[in-house]
Design a protein around this nucleic acid. Structure first.
Lengths: 243, 243
DNA sequence: CGAGCCGTTGAGGGGATTCAAGCTCAGTGG
DNA sequence: CCACTGAGCTTGAATCCCCTCAACGGCTCG
């Protein structure tokens, strides 16, 4: 884990005032705040990078910081009572991780990097204090909770039902929305796909192979592929049709 | 729909000060507020009763009020792109319905009564104004969002995967937690069960029939049954075991 | 009493799982 | 350089579970 505490940097370091000039500021948690509110914040914020499969937040632990995701994709997962892993949700650029810690609730799920990720670590007290002074921040937090809830509902409706083919297609549609349009799309491992969709590794593999043969996916490399959006939409429409 | 506007009642009506003496006050949204904060609230709150299958909130519409559920069970549902109905979540006594309206977001799902329900209708502006004066109310709202999110995650982990038998058992376990312990448990229609669990009517029916034969369910009436908690737990443990 | 809804049960087919075997590819050490 | 290794991916064959289609019975209501 590569930690860069901003407050240890010289004041004239271009990154020292990172929170003010942050490229993600408008979409991140503090986007609703004025410059003056951010004055002292950046001293407590730590930029970090993590590799694939590294654990950002652990279920059961009471962490003392939340994270803003600057780059990459993370997954929320837990073990079912039958012992299988279930991936419940993905989060992408701009999302806030570990929000429940602000309510002093224990984490229910592990949060794990799907790709290499860059995050900003924000101590819980910093958010709470800012929230007391700035109701707009509380409003923003509510928006984020609602967004997470809608995401979870959409996940349930799209990825948890229907044929294996439909689920995989829906997953691809969601995954393309993470990276830049046109850029290669991150593909999970087959096992991860299975745990997202409630399918086995083999079924996921068969579906992906078929989509490659059909031209929906091309240039599959180690963990990325380019998706033909038109073909994807066509395939989705066909699956959704009663035929 | 049976509407009883409280402010039309004489001041000495025992129900007129319903919000203060409400039996659910401690668990409901306004439970965090002091008596003085509730002074003028009850004038804007309307008690309502609705029958089974009636629509409380409609997806797409921008409603102007939220509802506190006093009695009964409601479901959140939507249509998938393939045209099938999917039930995403249940809410019970004390839950707040239509929370997203407080953020001026459109509703994504229909909210429909599963049983006869009693609700308190609270206009959105009332909540927003109170929230400005009382940060504790905002805190309570965040708690409720987090609770809904955890519920949604649990639904996904428990009810969206595994064998049909496991899903039905998990659903029964959840349903028993709504009514009073020992009291008969509300059972959805087979079609509703199917739409909750991603199964067909017939499969749901077969599973329920089997559980009745096994003694997990007894005295099935029109829409209620008594559940043997021990047998249910035993069955769940057996399903979750690798054997 | 017939109509319609809901639940149940049966028979047959299909799609996902299971079990098993090869494959590719990156990393390792000879 | 290349065999060796192990993790991840693919593919095949057999099995099983759930879906589909169908028929029937109970119940409520017009």
């Amino acid at each position: 884990m590569n930690v860069i505490p901003l407050h240890r940097r010289p004041a004239n370091d271009p990154q020292a005032r990172a929170c003010l000039s942050c490229s993600m500021r408008s979409t991140a948690l503090f986007g609703v705040l004025e410059d003056s509110d951010l004055e002292d914040v950046h001293q407590h914020v730590t930029q970090m990078q993590m590799d694939t499969d590294q654990l950002l937040l652990e279920a059961g632990r009471d962490g003392e910081a939340v994270y803003t995701l600057r780059e990459g994709i993370v997954r929320f997962e837990r073990a079912t009572t039958s012992g299988e892993r279930r991936i419940l949700r993905l989060a992408g650029c701009g999302d806030l991780l570990g929000q429940e810690l602000l309510l002093k609730r224990p984490l229910m799920d592990d949060v794990i990097a799907c790709t290499p990720v860059a995050v900003c670590r924000i101590p819980v007290p910093v958010v709470l204090q800012l929230g007391q002074r700035q109701p707009a921040l509380l409003h923003e937090l509510m928006q984020r909770w609602q967004h997470a809830l809608e995401d979870s509902h959409a996940w349930l409706a799209d990825l948890a039902g229907g044929s294996a083919r439909r689920r995989v297609l829906k997953l691809l549609a969601k995954l393309t929305s993470y990276g830049a349009p046109g850029a290669p799309t991150w593909l999970p491992r087959r096992e991860e796909m299975g745990d997202m969709l409630g399918l086995t590794v083999e079924t996921a593999s068969r579906q992906i192979s078929r989509l490659r043969r059909e031209g929906v996916l091309c240039s599959l490399t180690r963990r990325y592929a380019t998706v033909d959006p038109a073909a994807l939409q066509r395939a989705l429409a066909e699956v959704d049709r009663p035929g």
